[in-house]
């Protein structure tokens, strides 16, 4: 299409519009319908998934705690369903938040490095490497996590425990195998780093050159240019990227399953074994041997993960919306 860059273009569409206006309008309408239809399809799919989840989770949520305690192997006696899911929700959030706290600053640094600091050729190669890392399956992260990473981290965890044992996170007895929440958080951080980096980088690269040049022309240093032009423009994108990362960290199954030595407590001791468990790993761990009401209970915990993700996403949307006036394009 030549409309954007060659002088005769303005004439052509006008003439065409006159000759085939109805068709054009028809196309426009059809296109709109298709796009809207795709949106509706999403709603239908999700309605189906939600229906499936609720129908399968319902028996567990309405069952008496005695019935649940009998059918579900890990269900503690005399507790409500909330008390059963509670520690799992806690563990899931703890893992995801720790991972996000580690990954986001580093990922933003890497994204900025690739978009604004590294030499151009190097930047391309690095961008490529990061994309590649996003594709490593979580099973491999799991394998790497306990064969390579855990032995390296074990002395570091002991050191942290010795010197910073007064800090709640590093308290407790250090596990000799390092199969703990701390190691899981590091693995999850490594896992979501490429996702956050890739999206942030793409967004940073889209910063209008004019904004950047204007900042530089006003005498801004490189960091000031980044701070005043690039970061505000990329803010909504970075939050979206972090949310994508968080989504993956919240729902990550295999890596957690293979590394973590699980427990069912509200515990901040991330260096001690058998303290926390995440929902996704819990489902995968117990699903193979579950039957009857236990399956319903597992799916109900899946529903809880759903709700958490939903809440996190809504919070992120709210933040993005409030800062919209600072964000870039529209």
């Amino acid at each position: 299409m030549t409309t954007t860059d060659s002088p005769p273009a303005p004439v052509a569409p006008v003439r065409r519009r006159r000759s085939s206006g109805d068709t054009e309008r028809g196309f426009s309408r059809t296109f709109r319908w298709i796009a809207t239809g795709a949106g509706a399809l999403i709603l239908a799919t999700l309605a189906a998934v939600a229906l499936f989840l609720i129908v399968r989770a319902w028996p567990a949520m309405t069952a008496s705690s005695e019935a649940l305690a009998e059918a579900v192997p890990r269900y503690p006696d005399d507790t409500s369903f909330i008390a059963y899911v509670g520690p799992l929700i806690f563990g899931t959030l703890l893992a995801a938040v720790l991972a996000l706290l580690i990954a986001t600053p580093v990922a933003m640094g890497v994204a900025l490095f690739i978009s604004h600091y590294a030499p151009r050729r190097l930047a391309q190669a690095l961008g490529y490497l990061v994309d590649l890392l996003a594709a490593i399956p979580s099973v491999v992260y799991g394998l790497w996590g306990f064969t390579v990473l855990a032995p390296v981290l074990a002395p570091l965890w002991t050191w942290l425990n010795n010197w910073f044992g007064w800090f709640p996170l590093f308290a407790g007895d250090v596990s000799p195998t390092a199969r703990t929440m701390a190691t899981v958080a590091v693995v999850l951080a490594v896992m979501i780093l490429p996702i956050i980096t890739a999206v942030s980088r793409e967004v940073f690269l889209q910063t209008p050159k004019l904004h950047e040049e204007a900042a530089l022309a006003l005498g801004a240093t490189r960091w000031e240019m980044v701070r005043t032009a690039v970061l505000p423009f990329g803010q909504s994108g970075v939050i979206s990227a972090a949310m994508l990362g968080l989504g993956r960290a919240l729902g990550e199954t295999m890596a957690v399953l293979m590394i973590l030595s699980p427990g069912f407590l509200y515990s901040f001791k991330i260096l001690q074994a058998a303290q926390q468990q995440t929902i996704a790993a819990y489902i995968a761990l117990d699903f193979p041997e579950a039957s009857g009401l236990a399956v319903n209970a597992l799916i109900a915990t899946g529903l809880a993960l759903f709700v958490i993700t939903l809440a996190v996403n809504m919070a992120a949307r709210a933040i993005v919306a409030r800062r919209k006036e600072f964000s870039g394009a529209n």
């Binding site: 809207t36 949106g39 509706a40 999403i42 709603l43 799919t45 999700l46 189906a48 998934v49 939600a50 499936f52 989840l53 399968r56 949310m243 994508l244 989504g247 919240l250 729902g251 199954t253 929902i279 996704a280 489902i283 995968a284 699903f287 799916i299 899946g302 993960l305 759903f306 958490i308 993700t309 939903l310 996190v312 996403n313 809504m314 949307r317």
Partner: peptide
């Protein structure tokens, strides 16, 4: 509709992968 779609796409990012598998099987 648009608000609903945005909302539900967000919800969908939270589907644990094993649940997606179970859903497809059912």
């Amino acid at each position: 509709l648009a608000r609903a779609v945005t909302f539900f796409v967000d919800v969908m990012t939270g589907i644990p992968s094993i649940v997606a598998g179970l859903f497809a099987v059912s």
